[in-house]
Design a protein around this nucleic acid. Structure first.
Lengths: 342, 342
DNA sequence: CGGATATCCGGGAGCGCTCCCGATATCGGC
DNA sequence: GCCGATATCGGGAGCGCTCCCGGATATCCG
């Protein structure tokens, strides 16, 4: 065997030679397979350590057909919301949960149209074993494109307008809204407005529906009490202004996200309305850094992105083991965390 | 040739057979190599399209020794700052810039100690062609560990206490601080305090030094005028309170980050101090969403994370072409954006 | 018109790994 | 002492690709 130059990476063959065993035995020892004597295993491990061996992943995944990588796709056609707290939480949770099952996260942002082609090409290329997709917009073409993929896919939140044949893990958005609005009703509020999220996304649509249904059930009229905003702080502030102007006597507002609630609080305070004295505020997300830090702290519907991601990962793992898992939508429960704001 | 089952992924061999050419010719056509007739190329491309062929990346990178993936490592030993605006900007920029050179970003968060081992193992495993590292903390063991890697590494911002032998792209933190403080001095301020960032990180240290040097140069005494905080909004607010209490007659404050400046503004407003009437505020980062949106809009030192990442990527690309690039620190200039706050 | 050169193509080797299979070795139990 | 398990190991094949090299034409220039 020609002496390898120093900077050349050692191969399994090198380790085997160094340990005085065969390539097969070395492989078995390294992957702690069965049928290796303690003595051989010992020698191989020592050789690997001494040589600074680390297996060539390309070679390995060429034969195992596994890469050990999972893609997390964040699709946001408008490109502006990618630093919202929920997304951040999803990324962090994705990283952790995947690491826990021994997988590496490959993050993919998919904003623009040409991104779509590139994304599909990449996922198609066998770089990853599976995909977790967050694509909230109903008109997003991505989910449809991904259905054709030869790679298992699990969606986080409603996948565009796909209903069946896909694996989805979603929160009970409508139920959460009902929880919050019921709480406002029960504490005696009667003019309960809402700041809804963008109505081209599934979650905000469901939250708006929950608000409307709860009011109707309570014999209250929702007419004129809703305003749509774009999930940003500024959007929440503007929507709150509009509501105050149109409905000066409102005594509560259900806001479809914490971030917008922060904007609403700002407007309310500028307008001299006391929270919760004059106006009660309840929102959605229960973001760990945002909700408790406000003045007053926000009453908010708690959803745990980490739990969502964990569920998605577990479905994906089952999909990888055997692809005979019936596609289904899984709905995670949410709860109301009552704080000072309402 | 045995007929392949439907769900089996077609290989290059299949495409070649379908197109009636050899594997070599098919490969040449697909990688638009030289010496392929237009006719053959046409046929191969059509075959690939019809069969839904996409190359097996593992096989490809086994022989080319390129994966087309670049890791972006965000190391934050304290795990709390990962959703700060700068990090978010870095991630987005990393994704875009790498996509532009045809590379896929593999994001790696490295918080805890066991993350370190896993991270090193992963990077060592040949999953990626190169690494971009953001590890601001001087005590972070990661940069040191990465030096031993057989993979090109470029650091964003000072890499712990490593000085030579590494590729670094940093901003002119001290120069930026000088810019901001000089501006305050020139507009007639005399009691110029500072809210510094964590002094276990290179950037905040340099910013504090810039502030101190500028004051001294102007014949002003910096003693007692600085307060350290942790780059968070709440930290900025608290530090501002402390400063106001200790130095009631301060007429300006240089804050080491936009986020802390937001906290400081809040405290100032609560204390009834007019900005910039009573107290001028200048900060660092010029975060696109934060700085202009404040009341009043923040005067801030502009640094462009995207440019930093672009520079890092370009260095990395040169490193990949030929490893004979002299390691050096590259310092990017910053500028002062003057707005209403000071 | 012959040989140098450019163009095009196919076969073979080999990247580093896993996995199958056959060869030994060991070991009770008869 | 022989036989069938059981344990241990090595060699070979092959994953799907790129790249080198040699052969086959086509082109061109003196």
């Amino acid at each position: 065997m020609a002496p390898r130059s120093e900077d050349e990476r050692p191969t399994l063959e090198d380790v085997a030679a160094f340990a005085g065993v065969s390539r097969s035995t070395a492989s078995r020892a390294l992957n702690d397979d069965t049928y290796v004597s303690a003595r051989s295993r010992e020698k191989v491990l020592a050789a690997a350590r001494d040589l600074g061996y680390s297996p060539n992943q390309a070679a390995r995944s060429l034969v195992t057909r596994r890469t050990g990588a999972i893609a997390v796709v964040l699709s946001e056609p408008e490109a502006r919301l990618l630093d919202d707290p929920y997304r951040t939480a999803v990324m962090r949770a994705g990283y952790r949960e995947l690491a826990d099952v021994g997988c590496q996260m490959v993050l993919i942002f998919s904003d623009t149209r040409e991104d779509l082609a590139r994304t599909v090409r990449f996922l198609e290329g066998g770089h990853v074993d599976g995909v977790l997709v967050f694509a909230p917009h109903r008109t997003d073409p991505l989910p449809r494109a991904l259905r054709l993929l030869r790679v298992p896919v699990v969606f986080g939140g409603q996948a565009a307008d796909l209903r069946r044949g896909v694996h989805v893990v979603d929160f009970d958005n409508e139920g959460g809204a009902r929880l919050a609005v019921s709480h406002l009703v029960e504490s005696g509020r009667r003019r309960i407005a809402t700041i809804a999220g963008p109505q081209d996304q599934g979650a905000p649509i469901a939250r708006l529906a929950g608000w409307r249904a709860t009011l109707t059930d309570a014999g209250l009229d929702p007419a004129g009490l809703s305003e749509e905003a774009d999930f940003t702080l500024a959007g929440g502030a503007t929507a709150m202004s509009a509501l105050l102007q149109r409905v000066p006597d409102l005594d509560a507002v259900f806001v479809a996200s914490d971030m917008m609630a922060v904007g609403a609080l700002r407007t309310l305070s500028a307008a001299g309305r006391d929270v919760p004295g004059d106006v009660a505020v309840a929102s959605f997300d229960d973001n760990a850094t945002l909700a408790p830090a406000m003045t007053p702290p926000l009453t908010s519907v708690h959803q745990d992105p980490r739990e969502q991601v964990r569920t998605m990962v577990s479905i994906l793992m089952r999909l990888l083991d055997g692809p005979d898992l019936e596609p289904a939508a899984q709905v995670l429960p949410v709860s109301l965390v009552v704080r000072e704001s309402g």
